[in-house]
């Protein structure tokens, strides 16, 4: 078994013939590492993240989670997706289901967990994200921050090895960002392997082992957060950072 939880090797993604969203990207994430991907919009960071659980199919290159090759056409992609939890920018909670059923749906249908077992697990997770009193609410009755915390609990219910976050705080009002980042920080401290597309510098400094800067579909620079933020090697990184800092 390799030391790396996620390996991305020379991945490219084309949309149609002319648009190349990701250019020859390679990245390795160790077990328990938290890696943040930053970059201007349209730089291919979400596309790269989404190819890890094959919501986007990489046109070229290979991706592994542990020893399973995600990009192989013979792999059971549903097994991979169970192991890679995903959190979306727009939460994507199921609006017709109560919070608790949002969390238990996948464990019950995919893992055939009993209703009681799944509920018990869901309550633990709700407690972990600080929403134990909301289990009977519908998503529409929750604030954005609460919805995103439920979405994190929903992903954790499948007991994933890896968590993928696609701009988890970008759709939130500023006062709700912290509650979501706190949950993510807890996860990072517990040793979850995390790949996060986000511009939250505070989170990067507090939790990230590495920050990856992407631009124009390419990985331009990888470094420790403090080093990359204060002393970027590449001109493009420097330029981008002056825009967002």
């Amino acid at each position: 078994m390799s030391d790396y939880r996620i390996r991305i090797e020379n991945v490219s993604k084309f949309f149609g013939h002319s648009i190349q969203a990701v250019k020859n990207a390679s990245l390795k994430v160790k077990k328990g590492e938290v890696v943040l991907i930053i970059g201007p919009s349209g730089s291919g960071k979400s596309t790269l993240l989404r190819s890890v659980n094959r919501l986007e199919v990489a046109t070229e290159g290979k991706i592994w989670i542990d020893d399973d090759e995600v990009t192989s056409s013979s792999i059971d992609i549903r097994k991979i997706r169970e192991e890679a939890g995903m959190v979306f920018q727009s939460f994507n909670l199921f609006p017709h289901l109560r919070v608790i059923d949002n969390i238990t749906l996948a464990p019950r249908t995919v893992k055939n967990l009993s209703k009681e077992g799944a509920n018990e697990q869901a309550r633990k997770l709700l407690k972990k994200v600080g929403l134990e009193d909301k289990e009977q609410a519908y998503p529409g009755q929750l604030s954005g921050g609460q919805q995103q915390r439920v979405a994190i609990a929903r992903a954790l219910a499948m007991e994933p090895k890896v968590m993928l976050f696609d701009e988890p705080t970008s759709a939130l009002d500023p006062e709700m960002i912290k509650e979501v980042l706190d949950v993510m920080l807890d996860l990072a401290r517990e040793g979850m392997t995390m790949l996060v597309v986000s511009h939250e510098m505070g989170f990067a400094r507090a939790a990230a082992d590495k920050v990856v800067f992407m631009d124009g579909g390419e990985i331009i620079e990888v470094g420790a957060p403090d080093e990359l933020f204060s002393n970027p090697k590449e001109e493009r990184t420097r330029k981008f950072l002056t825009h967002i800092l």
Binding site: N53, L55, R78, K79, R81, E82, A84, G85, M86, F88, S90, N92, L93, F94, L105, A106, T109, V110, A151, R154, A155, M158
Partner: peptide, 20 residues
Amino acid sequence: GQMEAAIALGMSRGQALRKV
């Protein structure tokens, strides 16, 4: 996003269709 969220949890397309 509803279909994406469901299949990202490991559900099959059929399951996602029926339940979500």
